[in-house]
Amino acid sequence: MSTVKLTIDGKVAEVSSELTVLQAARSIGIDIPALCYDETLEIFGACRMCIVEIEGSNKLQTSCSTLVKNGMIVHTETDRIKSTRKDIVQMLLDSHPNDCLTCQKSGECLLQDYAYRYDANFRNHHGAMRPQLMDTSSPYILRDNSKCILCGKCVLTCYQVSDRQVLSFSERGYDTKVVFGADQTIEESPCVSCNRCVAVCPVGALVDKRQLGKIRNWDGNTTVVMCKACEYGCEFEVYSRNKENIAVTAKAPSNGRPLCLKGRLATELKYLENPDKPYIKINERFEETTWDKALGITELIEKINRLEKDNKEEEE
């Protein structure tokens, strides 16, 4: 592995030749915007926000999919780039509902951040909007298609776990949408409610339904905790306000950590005073259940109870 030297916005970066321009820039503290890039996912190249200008070429190039080269001179915020990024954000806003006031994602939404950064705003127009297809079938995930920017992160992260691969793209052009299973509701689809997709969604298209309406990102504190349900040790965020824990959400999966429903429920049970009732999917229907059943520990608890009872009897 060799290293190369390149200049990004006047700063010199000495990085591995296997890095992309975006990775190199971030490594020296230059934040190139990107909606679809995630270092744990396959490079997708869909959002086009990470475009940069590289001297020697007239074309705008996506920094997520361009490898560094020795002597490269990169500019990441020229007027041309800024105006193109503004246009891209504007295009997304033109198809997006103007409901940041009530959106669960507000405050941690990348589209919102970039709209602010590039001064793009909602506007009235007579053209098409993404159709409203709200999927409320799951107690764990709320899907709002009208907010989807089709960055593909949810599809790619679901694809990484070989026995899941529930999400995919359907239709094409402006009608393109992300679907669960064979364009089913979350309930009917083989979705296992691991919330990987929710954790990577940059906007409010996929949100954690158990957090909905309770607390938003800026409205309290978050603590990162590690799940103890299995040896993977997936991370969760515990949201709290006034020292009361209010919600638990999955953090983006990394280093092969899969996330799962059982781990999430176990974490909720551990950290929340009054967790919502658990649900499990039985024959493509979500049904309310008991905590021991949801965590699959009914037999263990029975056994523990029996042993403790036996012990007590022996002592007596």
Binding site: D87, I88, M91, S95, L150, R172, G173, Y174
Partner: peptide, 21 residues
């Protein structure tokens, strides 16, 4: 082009639609 856009990237999916409109 609007009809045949694959829908992956923003400029083509959204931009051609607006141009058509």
């Amino acid at each position: 082009s609007v009809e045949e856009s694959c829908g992956k990237c923003v400029p083509c999916r959204e931009g051609t639609k607006r141009m058509y409109e």
